[in-house]
Amino acid sequence: EQIEAIAKFDYMGRSPRELSFKKGASLLLYHRASEDWWEGRHNGVDGLIPHQYIVVQD
């Protein structure tokens, strides 16, 4: 089940696996990879999304 999230802040990925996005961006989350990271998608690209930078939608 995919979960929708909105970016709270701009984020610049620090490795090829991390996604970069702007504040207000819509993100799709697949699952929680760790306490700090989600596996997800932004603009058709899959990668890691930092939990602290997003708001998960109910």
Rank of each mutant, 00 (worst) to 15 (best):
Met12Pro: 04
Ala33Leu: 14
His31Leu: 09
Gln2Tyr: 15
Asp36Pro: 07
Pro50Cys: 07
Ala33Ser: 13
Asp58Cys: 07
Ser15Phe: 10
Arg17Ile: 04
Leu28Glu: 13
Trp38Met: 00
Ile6Asn: 06
Ile54Gly: 01
Pro16Glu: 15
Ala25Met: 13
His42Val: 13
Gly13Trp: 03
Gln57Gly: 11
Asp58Gly: 09
Glu18Met: 03
Tyr30Asp: 05
Glu39Arg: 10
Ala5Lys: 02
Met12Arg: 11
Ser15Asn: 13
Tyr53Thr: 10
Pro16Phe: 07
Gln2Val: 15
Gln57Glu: 15
His42Tyr: 11
Gly47Glu: 00
Leu27Ile: 10
Ile6Lys: 15
His51Asn: 13
Trp38His: 04
Val45Glu: 15
Ala25Thr: 11
Ser26Thr: 04
Phe21Leu: 03
Pro50Glu: 02
Leu19Ser: 02
Gln52Tyr: 03
Tyr30Val: 11
Ile49Thr: 02
Ile6Gly: 03
Val45Ala: 14
Lys23Gln: 11
Ala25Val: 07
Gly47Val: 02
His42Arg: 05
Arg41Leu: 08
Glu18Val: 06
Lys8Ser: 10
Ser20Lys: 04
Leu48Val: 12
Gly24Asn: 10
Asn43Ile: 05
Val45Cys: 03
Arg14Ala: 07
Val56Asp: 15
Ala7Asp: 00
Leu27Ser: 00
Lys23Trp: 03
Ile6Pro: 02
Glu35Ser: 10
Tyr53Asn: 03
Ile49Gly: 00
Arg32Ile: 04
Lys23Cys: 05
His31Glu: 14
Ser15Leu: 13
Ser34Trp: 04
Phe21Pro: 01
Arg17Asp: 08
Leu29His: 02
Val55Tyr: 15
Glu4Leu: 11
Leu19His: 02
Pro50Gln: 07
Glu18Ser: 09
Arg41Gly: 11
Pro50Ile: 02
Leu48Lys: 14
Leu29Glu: 00
Gly44Pro: 01
Gly13Asn: 06
Glu35Leu: 07
Asn43Ser: 13
Tyr11His: 07
Val56Cys: 14
Gly47Lys: 01
Val55Thr: 13
Tyr11Gly: 01
Gly47Ala: 02
Glu4Phe: 14
Gly44Ile: 03
Gly13Glu: 08
Ser20Gly: 06
Lys23Asp: 03
Lys8Arg: 08
Gly24Trp: 03
Lys22Gln: 15
